Computed example of a mutant assay.
Amino acid sequence: MLGERLDAATMVVHLLGGPYVSIGARRVDVPEGSKRLLAFVALNDGRVSRRHAAGTLWPDVADLRAAGNLRSSLWRLNRHCAELVDADKATLTLREGVLVDADLVSAWADRLEAGVATGPDLAVHPSGTAALDLLPGWYDDWVLGERDRLRQRLLHALEVMSARLAEVSPGEAVSAALVAVTAEPLRESAQRALIEAHIAHGNWGEAVHQFTAYRRLLAAELGVEPHPTLTRLLLPVLVRAVR
């Protein structure tokens, strides 16, 4: 779902479904005590002050203790992950050439939304909804806002991707929309993308089935009806059914 062709030696920090590190096809697990430090640096554009990192990651201890915790965490990280983070007296920086998967998927979403996606950008990968969860199970304040922002961007990109694919490969369009619908069943724009993909594929029965299931879900969860524009997509079939 990213479109990038990465070199076998490329090091990537994975925050979606992570954190962990990959070097080509090889996965490298991050020491438990260093995961939050790596994620914090990666989410801050790969560069952060030591004081800010220590104060954010260890807010309930004295400054000297927090600085010591940071040094220990950094030592364990670089010992297991090949000098992943460069450090001087003031700053922590991801080593040059290290990529972050959250940045890669953001760039992928940018290309889709700008209408400049290439062939690899339109490939639906089997990772599915797992690729939408930034640092799952983490509830730090510095994670929550970024998780929601990135998730919304990726869901919208999947809808755009489905619309693009509907013109050339309706089956793949269905697959892309299904990822978004599975992640957020109440999201009407995702349901619309899936219904439109079914129609593009000529599967009117599947489209009606999806609409009916969504209508029931909305009624049960929110007590509302789908937007009239969604209903109008199925008018050709619904009118014949009434007749």
Results as ranks from 00 to 15, higher is better:
1 M>P: 12
1 M>N: 10
4 E>Y: 10
4 E>C: 07
5 R>P: 09
7 D>R: 14
8 A>T: 13
8 A>N: 12
10 T>E: 09
10 T>D: 09
13 V>R: 01
13 V>S: 00
15 L>N: 02
15 L>V: 09
16 L>V: 03
18 G>S: 07
18 G>K: 02
22 S>P: 00
23 I>Y: 08
25 A>T: 13
25 A>F: 11
25 A>V: 12
25 A>P: 11
26 R>T: 10
28 V>F: 08
31 P>C: 03
32 E>W: 09
33 G>V: 03
34 S>C: 06
36 R>E: 14
37 L>E: 04
37 L>C: 06
38 L>N: 02
40 F>G: 08
40 F>I: 10
40 F>S: 10
43 L>P: 01
44 N>T: 09
44 N>K: 11
45 D>Q: 15
46 G>A: 05
47 R>Q: 15
48 V>Y: 02
50 R>N: 07
53 A>N: 07
54 A>P: 01
54 A>Y: 01
56 T>P: 05
59 P>F: 00
60 D>M: 11
60 D>F: 13
61 V>Q: 09
62 A>I: 13
63 D>W: 14
64 L>P: 11
65 R>H: 14
65 R>S: 15
67 A>N: 11
68 G>E: 05
68 G>Q: 10
71 R>T: 14
71 R>N: 14
73 S>C: 03
73 S>T: 00
74 L>S: 04
74 L>D: 02
76 R>H: 13
77 L>M: 06
78 N>F: 04
85 V>R: 01
87 A>V: 10
89 K>T: 15
89 K>M: 14
91 T>P: 04
93 T>P: 02
93 T>L: 11
94 L>Y: 02
95 R>E: 06
96 E>F: 10
100 V>I: 09
101 D>A: 04
103 D>V: 11
104 L>A: 05
107 A>L: 09
109 A>I: 06
109 A>P: 07
109 A>T: 05
112 L>T: 08
114 A>Y: 02
116 V>T: 15
118 T>S: 15
119 G>R: 15
120 P>K: 03
122 L>D: 01
131 A>Y: 04
133 D>L: 13
136 P>A: 04
139 Y>K: 15
139 Y>W: 12
145 G>H: 10
146 E>I: 12
148 D>R: 15
149 R>V: 05
151 R>W: 10
151 R>E: 13
153 R>A: 07
154 L>I: 08
155 L>E: 04
155 L>Y: 03
157 A>V: 01
158 L>T: 00
158 L>N: 06
159 E>P: 00
159 E>L: 10
160 V>T: 11
162 S>C: 05
163 A>T: 12
163 A>C: 07
164 R>P: 03
171 G>Q: 07
173 A>D: 02
179 V>W: 02
181 V>D: 05
182 T>L: 06
184 E>P: 08
189 S>F: 06
191 Q>T: 00
194 L>G: 01
194 L>T: 01
198 H>M: 03
201 H>T: 09
203 N>Y: 04
203 N>I: 01
206 E>H: 10
207 A>D: 02
207 A>S: 09
210 Q>Y: 00
217 L>H: 10
218 L>Q: 04
218 L>C: 08
219 A>E: 15
220 A>C: 04
222 L>R: 14
222 L>N: 08
225 E>F: 08
225 E>H: 13
226 P>V: 05
226 P>F: 05
226 P>W: 05
226 P>Q: 07
229 T>I: 07
229 T>K: 12
232 R>H: 15
235 L>C: 11
236 P>E: 04
237 V>G: 06
238 L>K: 04
240 R>D: 13
